[in-house]
């Protein structure tokens, strides 16, 4: 949380990106605490590793100094944020407590996955079996999204740099 707040405050974008990497790593350790080892693994490698490298790449292509905003109203946005946060907090009073085994979420399909996965799929890691087999469609769609993102990035910045139209007009 501290790193997130610091990332909000700082203006030097290099520091912001590095703090974002630290924030990802901290949240990955939080995922381990909450028993989500697969997710923690992914978050540590993706958030703290690759995302930081991509952001640094962008900074090296653009600029690393954030300018002081010209006509921004920080108070207004702070007010909006606080009101939204308060409304959300009010909403949490109806949600089941943290770590409660009687939550409705634990009584729908999860017991089926946990109990029958060994007989039906035969692999111990339930996350893998749900990911690849029970919810194969989701993962197929997700792989397609990643594929599409790669195509998008290639179209946007993949080719050699051409002189943009504006430069031509100016010269």
């Amino acid at each position: 949380m501290v790193t997130a707040v610091a990332a909000v405050r700082l203006r030097d974008l290099f520091a912001v990106v590095m703090l974002f990497g630290i924030y990802s790593l901290v949240s990955a350790s939080l995922f381990v605490v909450m028993d989500a080892v697969d997710v923690a693994f992914t978050e540590a490698s993706v958030g703290a590793g690759v995302a930081t490298v991509f952001m640094l790449g962008t900074l090296s292509l653009t600029t690393h100094r954030e300018k002081t905003p010209i006509a921004r109203k920080p108070l207004l946005s702070l007010l909006v944020v606080i009101i939204t946060g308060a409304a959300l907090m009010y909403g949490t009073y109806d949600i089941p407590h943290y770590g409660d085994a009687n939550d409705p979420i634990h009584h729908h399909v999860a017991p089926h996955y946990l109990e029958d996965s060994m007989e039906e799929i035969g692999i111990p890691n339930v996350v893998s079996s749900v990911l690849a087999s029970y919810r194969g469609y989701d993962t197929l769609g997700e792989t397609t999204v990643v594929f599409t993102a790669a195509i998008g990035v290639l179209i946007l910045i993949g080719g050699a740099r051409r002189r943009s139209k504006r430069d031509d007009e100016r010269s």
């Binding site: 995302a51 946990l114 946007l156």
Partner: peptide, 30 residues
């Protein structure tokens, strides 16, 4: 065991997240 279903959803979401972030960064570069 903790509930595996949210883990699967978030696993997918993280990878989609990095893909969309990189697309956004590419747009920023352009």
């Amino acid at each position: 065991y903790s509930n595996p279903v949210p883990h699967v959803l978030i696993l997918t979401a993280i990878v989609v997240g990095i893909a969309t972030t990189s697309l956004g960064l590419a747009l920023v570069v352009r």
